[in-house]
Design a binder for these strands. Structure first.
Lengths: 208, 208
DNA sequence: ATTCTTGTGTTGACAGTGTCAACATGAATG
DNA sequence: CATTCATGTTGACACTGTCAACACAAGAAT
C-alpha cells in the first residue's frame, strides 16, 4: 500500500548512546507524524530514524505499535479535555459556555482528524484496552457531566440522569465530528453551522 | 503486527482456470472476513487463497486493496439503507417507525462493527473517494430525509430544512453507534437504552 | 475451423513492515 | 573497581501490497 512520505531524518548533533527521554520524544514524534502525514504513515522504523535511533529502540519503552498508538490516544484525550474545559469555563459556565464546548469539541476533531481517529478508530479501545486512555477518556467525559450538573442546578437543563444526558450529547458532537471528518457534510453546511444548529435543536427538540 | 488467523483455505473442487464471478466472490469473502476476523485480518493473499485462486488474481477486478475496501463500504451502505427503510416502513411511517429507524441504525453498527468502521473509518471516504459508495451513502441518507419530510407533512416535526435536520439526527445515531463500538457505553447503559433515551430527548429537547 | 485478440489467472520478485533473539553499551550500584 | 541492569543495536524472519512478465482460455475475426 503506497503511503505519503514523512519528512527526512533530522539529527541535530551526533546523539549519545542514551537518548535523554526517548518515550516522550517518540510519543511526540508519533503524534506529529500522524497529524501531518496520517496514521498509515506512522512506522516504527520511521520514528526511530527520525529520532536518530535504531528501528527497535522503541520496544524498550512500548510493548508494540498498538501501545504507541494507545499513548497517542491518551495524549489526545488529555488535549481534548483541556480544550473542552477551557471553552466551558471561559464561555461563562452557562448556556453560552455549553455551546462553546460543542464547537470546541468538533473543532478539535476537525483540526486533528487523524489523531482524533486514533482516539476513536477502534485500533485502541478507549474503554478497556489501555487503562490510562480509558481514564482520560472518562476524564474528558467528566468535564461534560460536570457542566451538565451545573446547568441543572441553575435550571437550564432538565433533571434527567446527568450521565445519560452526557452520553447523549457526546453522541451528538461525536457524530457531527465524524461526519465532518468523513466529508459527509456538504459544502453549504459546514461543521460549525451544523453544531450551531445542533445546539439549538438539542435544547428545544425537533417537535414543532 | 500480530493478527488473528482467518479460516483455512477451502476449495470444494479443483476450480477451472476461469472462476465464474470472481469480483462478487471476492467482495463476499472480504465482507465475511472483516465481519468474523476484523479489518486488519483482511489480506489480499488470504482472500485469494480462500477462494482457491492466486494472490494477485484480485488485481484483475480491483485496482488495489483500497478499491476492495471501497466495495465493502458500498455493500455496507446498501444493507444499511435497506435496514433503515424497512424499519421506517414496517414501523408505520410515523413516530414509532422513526424511533425504529434509530434503533435499526445502531443495531446495524453493533451487529457488524468492523464492517461499519470500514464505511466510516476514513480508509475510504464515503463522500468523494469512491463515487459509488458516496451515492449509496447519500441513498441511505435520503431515506432519512424522506422520513423527516413525511413527518413534517403530518405535523410531527418542525419545519426546519429537512436536510439539516437529517444531518443532525444522523449525527446522533452515528455518534451513539460509534460510542457503542468503542465500548464507551457502560454496561448499565446499553446502546438500545441510549437510543431510546435519545429518541425522547431528540423530540422535546434537554431544556426543562 | 483456424487465427487473433483480449480478458482473466499465475509465478517471480521486490521493497517495506512489525517483531523477536542475541548482542553491545553505559550509567548506576555494591 | 567490578557488577548489574536498563537501554540501544544488529541480524533475521515471516508477512504484506504491488508490479512485471508470462500462461491460459473464450469469443471475434478471418
Amino acid at each position: 500500500m503506497l503511503r505519503s512520505r514523512p519528512r527526512k531524518p533530522v539529527r541535530k548533533q551526533p546523539r549519545r548512546y542514551h537518548h535523554g527521554d526517548l518515550p516522550r520524544a517518540m510519543l511526540q514524534e508519533a503524534v506529529q507524524t500522524i497529524q501531518t502525514h496520517g496514521t498509515e504513515a506512522l512506522t516504527l522504523r520511521g520514528v526511530g530514524e527520525r529520532l536518530g535511533v535504531s528501528r527497535t529502540a522503541l520496544y524498550r519503552h512500548f510493548a508494540d505499535k498498538q501501545a504507541l498508538l494507545a499513548a497517542v490516544a491518551t495524549e489526545g484525550f488529555r488535549s481534548l479535555r483541556v480544550a473542552l474545559f477551557e471553552a466551558w469555563d471561559t464561555g461563562g459556565r452557562g448556556r453560552e459556555g455549553f455551546d462553546a464546548m460543542g464547537i470546541a469539541y468538533v473543532r478539535f476533531a476537525v483540526a486533528h482528524p487523524a489523531h482524533y481517529r486514533v482516539m476513536f478508530g477502534g485500533v485502541v479501545r478507549p474503554a478497556d484496552g489501555s487503562q490510562e486512555a480509558g481514564d482520560l477518556g472518562t476524564d474528558a467525559f467528566q468535564v461534560l457531566v460536570d457542566a451538565i450538573v451545573e446547568q441543572q442546578q441553575r435550571g437550564l437543563v432538565r433533571g434527567d440522569d446527568p450521565r445519560q444526558l452526557a452520553l447523549y450529547i457526546w453522541s451528538v458532537v461525536h457524530g457531527v465530528a465524524m461526519l465532518a471528518l468523513d466529508g459527509m457534510l456538504p459544502p453549504p453546511t459546514q461543521a460549525d453551522a451544523l453544531v450551531k444548529f445542533a445546539n439549538e435543536r438539542l435544547r428545544t427538540g425537533i417537535a414543532p
